[in-house]
Simulated scan of single mutants.
Amino acid sequence: MVWYAALVLAVAGERVAELAVALRNTRWARARGGVESGRGHYPAMVALHTALLVGCLVEAAVADRPFVPLLGWAMAAVVLAAQGLRWWCIRTLGHRWNTRVVVVPGLPLVTGGPYRLLRHPNYVAVAAEGIALPLVHGAWVTAALFTVCNAVLMAVRVRCEEAALTSASGVPA
């Protein structure tokens, strides 16, 4: 269980790094006329992602979930792949990547990197991690609850993002 706690804490550290990048990118975007949308759902997103990390540790410990090697190692690989995809998204979008929806009017859509393959690859990474991280140590209730709540939140988020991109470019996203 100690190594699992270390994994969850490493993911939490990665989230802190994301927030630092997002803060820098928010300043960059606002200096160029960036407009933020979707402020109302952002606190729910932060709460959900925090609950995922806490839920992983609490469920594994309190429910005494066992580490099942075949499942656990496979899910650990998915967690690592999700981190790779997330940072590929961050690198591809550069200053335009954010945890918030902040769009600089007039900039064209990014169509390189993972965006040439998927419309919202970062959300694929989030969904994969939300399922895999809890299942590394058998926390299936956390995985299920996160997946359902994340699906609802992503429906709101993607609509918000698409509307903001359309508004900023004048062309349907």
Rank of each mutant, 00 (worst) to 15 (best):
E18M: 10
A29F: 04
G138P: 01
G38D: 02
G84S: 09
L117T: 14
P172V: 14
T166R: 12
R157N: 06
A61G: 13
E18C: 09
P121Q: 10
A74H: 09
A143H: 03
R100E: 14
T142W: 08
G72N: 01
H41I: 08
A82M: 05
A163L: 11
R24C: 05
A164L: 06
A76W: 04
T99P: 03
T166V: 09
L85I: 13
P43G: 11
Q83H: 12
M75S: 01
G72C: 02
I90W: 07
M154I: 13
R86S: 10
R159M: 09
P69S: 05
V126H: 06
G94M: 12
V136Q: 05
A144L: 15
G113S: 04
L118Q: 01
F146H: 12
I90L: 14
G34M: 02
P134S: 12
L71G: 00
W28A: 09
L7N: 01
W28S: 04
A10W: 09
A173I: 01
V136A: 08
A163N: 09
E161C: 03
P108F: 12
W28G: 04
A77R: 10
R91L: 13
V46C: 13
A22E: 10
T26S: 14
W28H: 11
R86W: 10
R119D: 06
V101R: 03
G84D: 06
T166F: 07
W97S: 05
R91H: 14
R157S: 07
A163I: 03
L53F: 02
E36V: 06
T50D: 00
R15K: 13
T111N: 12
W140S: 14
G138M: 01
W28T: 05
P66T: 14
C149H: 07
M154G: 00
V171H: 12
V110Y: 03
V78Y: 06
L80A: 15
V58P: 09
A20W: 14
V126D: 01
A10Q: 02
A143L: 07
H120V: 00
D64G: 12
